[in-house]
Computed example of a mutant assay.
Amino acid sequence: MSRFSIKARMQRSIALRKGEVVLRADFAQLGSPSQISRALKALQAEGRIVRLGYGVYAKARPSVLSGRPIPRVTLAELAQETLRKLGAPAELGRAQQAYAQGRRTQIPAHTTFNTGQRRISRKITVGISTVRYENDYKPRA
């Protein structure tokens, strides 16, 4: 039996990780699903992590304005890292690529990712901002 609680072990694991995104599946070996759920809720209540979507969390810091926990990096970076960890191919959307390459001067209003031939329905949200997906999927004729 470990002398540290599951919550303490999860907190240490999160702190030692290089990336900003943490998946619930990363903690499967630490305990039962209900124990992991309780520990994740406790870490959320303490402001150490924020929930991005189903089974997806990000490292957090207190907001300068409100003091509430917010992710340490932008939604675009979090979404890209999340999709990479889940094994889904993701590139910036057409509008964001055009802006990054200097072909357009209008700043894209939404965070959009092109997923190629893959259809994704996962919702990744920070506050009121949600990631959108575009793809090259063509249904059968």
Rank of each mutant, 00 (worst) to 15 (best):
V50A: 06
M10Q: 00
L92R: 12
Q106L: 12
V73H: 02
P71S: 03
D136V: 09
G19F: 00
G55L: 03
P33I: 07
A8V: 06
G53M: 06
K85A: 06
K7N: 01
R119C: 11
T112Q: 08
E134S: 08
A45Y: 07
T111I: 13
S37A: 15
D136G: 09
Y137V: 11
L43Q: 04
T112G: 01
R17H: 09
I6H: 00
Q97K: 13
Q106E: 13
P69Q: 01
R84Q: 14
A95H: 10
L65N: 08
R140L: 15
M10P: 00
S66Q: 03
K18Y: 08
Y54V: 10
K7C: 05
T112E: 11
S129W: 14
R61G: 01
I14Q: 00
R24Y: 12
S2V: 06
A141D: 13
Q11L: 09
A39Q: 04
M1P: 10
V56S: 02
R119G: 03
A25G: 07
A98P: 01
T112R: 11
A60L: 07
A45K: 14
K41D: 15
N135T: 15
V22Q: 06
R122I: 14
I70F: 01
R68L: 14
R132S: 12
I36M: 06
A90M: 06
V22D: 02
V73G: 04
A98D: 12
I107H: 10
L65W: 06
Q80N: 09
P108F: 02
I36T: 09
A79T: 05
G47D: 08
T125N: 10
M10F: 00
V126T: 11
G102M: 05
I124E: 04
H110V: 11
D136F: 12
E77D: 13
R84I: 09
A58C: 03
R132T: 12
Y57V: 03
S13C: 03
V21F: 07
V21W: 04
E91D: 14
M10A: 02
Q106G: 06
I107V: 14
S66H: 02
E81D: 08
L83N: 03
I70V: 15
L52W: 04
A79C: 07
Q11G: 02
R38V: 11
A141Q: 13
D26C: 04
R61N: 03
P108G: 05
A88C: 11
A79Q: 03
S34D: 13
A79P: 02
A90E: 03
E91H: 11
I70W: 02
A45I: 06
A95S: 11
I70G: 00
K85R: 15
K85P: 01
R61L: 10
A100P: 00
A28D: 13
S2Q: 07
F113R: 05
T82M: 05
N135Y: 06
G116H: 04
R51H: 05
T111F: 02
G67H: 03
R84A: 15
